[in-house]
Each structure stands twice: as structure tokens, then as C-alpha cells.
């Protein structure tokens, strides 16, 4: 009997651990905060954008598929920047770059005319943010509402646009 109780306890502990880990980035939960410097070196937190719909875009200048989707992001930014949503007013993109060289990061932002928030600790794949958001590859993104709640994950192109359209007033 004692053995059964012990096994059940271990199983419960294991399940709760697994459950709590997988809860981190679930839709409907609060996105973990990010505190990283922008190109000027000023810290910009994700939570400072509360009130707006935010697309957290994980990318890098060395990631070809990421660069390919930047024009689409520019289009969405222009389209929704000042829109009013069911849970938020305005749309912002919080670009988190996994670059390691500041010159590469800076020059691609200039070259592609990226005019939304950009942050990076220039630590490449060993940046703590990769663990926080359990990144397995690039590009990756998370869409959050004005309260910081995750609405969608890893949507691209038309699917991303449709997800934003859905929450327009």
C-alpha cells in the first residue's frame, strides 16, 4: 500500500512539473516579460507596451526566412498600427534579434527600413530569452493582447493577418 502511495505521489509531482512547464507559453497565459536593450542601449521591456496588441518577433539578420517575412511585417505594422482592438488599442511589433554582431543587426534594420521596436542582447542562441520562450528555431513569433495575454503563436503571412483581423473592433 505504501509503495502505491509513493508511486502515485511521484507520478503526481512529475505530472505537475510537466504541466507547469508546458503552461509557460500556452494561449491564454501571460507572456513572460522581456527586458532587453535597443540599438541605443536603452532597455525596453515587453510589459512597457501593455495596452497595445503586440507581435513578439524572434528573428536575426542571419536568418534568411526571417528576412523574407519582414516586408509582410512592415505591411501589417502599417495597416494595424493605429487600429482599435477588442483587447487593446494600437499594434506594435517587438522585434527580438538573436544577432551576435551589432553591426550586422544595425545594418539590416537600416537596409530594410524597420521602424518598430527592436531589442537584442547580442548573445545569439545562448541568449536567456531563447530559454524563456523555448525557442527551437527562427522565425518564431507570439501575438499578445493589451493585457499581455498570449492570443496566438508562430503564425505567419495570411494566417497572422487573419488572427489580427479577428480581434479588430
Amino acid at each position: 500500500m505504501k509503495k502505491i502511495i509513493l508511486i502515485a505521489t511521484i507520478l503526481c509531482l512529475h505530472l505537475s512539473l510537466v504541466f507547469s512547464q508546458s503552461q509557460d507559453l500556452n494561449i491564454g497565459t501571460i507572456a513572460p516579460d522581456i527586458r532587453l536593450p535597443n540599438l541605443k542601449g536603452d532597455t525596453v521591456t515587453l510589459s512597457s507596451l501593455r495596452g497595445k496588441i503586440v507581435l513578439i518577433d524572434f528573428w536575426a539578420s542571419w536568418c534568411a526566412p526571417c528576412l523574407k517575412e519582414q516586408p509582410k511585417l512592415a505591411e501589417l505594422y502599417k495597416k494595424y498600427k493605429d487600429s482599435v482592438f477588442t483587447v487593446g488599442k494600437g499594434f506594435e511589433i517587438y522585434g527580438v534579434s538573436l544577432d551576435s554582431k551589432k553591426t550586422s543587426w544595425k545594418s539590416i534594420i537600416k537596409k530594410m527600413n524597420i521602424n518598430w521596436t527592436q531589442v537584442s542582447d547580442l548573445k545569439f542562441w545562448v541568449s536567456p530569452v531563447t530559454k524563456k520562450y523555448n525557442l527551437q528555431g527562427l522565425p518564431f513569433n507570439v501575438l499578445i493582447d493589451g493585457n499581455g495575454v498570449i492570443i496566438a503563436k508562430n503564425l505567419h503571412g495570411v494566417k497572422l493577418e487573419q488572427a489580427i483581423d479577428k480581434i479588430l473592433i
Binding site: 542562441w125 545562448v126 525557442l135 527551437q136 528555431g137 527562427l138
Partner: peptide, 15 residues
């Protein structure tokens, strides 16, 4: 086949 993170860093290989 995936990337440096998944196939090297996450496996704890030397960096």
C-alpha cells in the same frame, strides 16, 4: 539538421 541550438547547445556540447 535543425540549428545550433537544438542540435548542439541544448545537448550540452562544448561551447
Amino acid at each position: 539538421p535543425h540549428n545550433l541550438k537544438v542540435d548542439w547547445i541544448d545537448k550540452g556540447y562544448p561551447i
